[in-house]
Amino acid sequence: MLSKRLISCLDVRDGRLVKSVRFVNTKDIGDPVSAARRYYEAGLDELVFYDITASSDQRDIMLDVVEDVARQVFIPFSVGGGLRSVEDCRRVLGAGAEKVNLNTAAVADPDVISEVADAFGVQAVVLSMDVKASPAASIPSGYEIVTHGGRRNTGMDAIEWARRGEALGAGEIVVNSIDADGTLEGYELTLTRMIAGTVGIPVIASGGGGRPEHLCDALTAGGADAALVASMLHYGHYSVGSIKQFLHDQGLKIRMTGQ
């Protein structure tokens, strides 16, 4: 039986690990490579690196980070942020990542999803969607796709976008609630459940995880296959082992590494 996955998201800016609340007020909280190795050794299932480097001429720093991680960490990891083309993705995958996260670039040009899937296989393509609750009549599900950290509305319905992303060749979907992100008050369960019920590919809950109970909710009531955590681990409030033990004790199928 397949285990539910615990994934940690590491935001990287100019080669440093940072944490932002609602994508603003970023804080330097260390070296991404040593954090990745620490989590790997503690039994984490997967990693996501999000490059939030502002200027494109600093992007090569990220490739160095990816290569360093790939030399020391032997679990799957994906990289997102600033990837716009098959060529961008090829560089990141060549440096050692298993998967790429497409977000803004896919909203601007959905065909990039199928181009990347054709080039590297659907298993390499993660569609990352930033979502905000919307009362607009043009958004039937009540959830809208946003970009630029939630500052820009797209007019696209989240359910419709998830369905389209899957059809275009995404192999997984990260559902990131901008409303919940950084609050540590729990994942957006209604949204997560809606997407998980719509697509036939794995769904990763993201944004709002603050306590192990929140992950349990996302993986049961939310219908998610994996849950993404950031602050919970980065600030040392919880360890990989303590989160996994909690989920295991709740009866979820979890990979226990016995370390």
Partner: peptide, 13 residues
């Protein structure tokens, strides 16, 4: 089982 997604992706025993 419709809950079993294909590809089989993740950690298994």
């Amino acid at each position: 089982d419709p809950d079993l997604k294909v590809p089989h992706m993740g950690w298994n025993e």
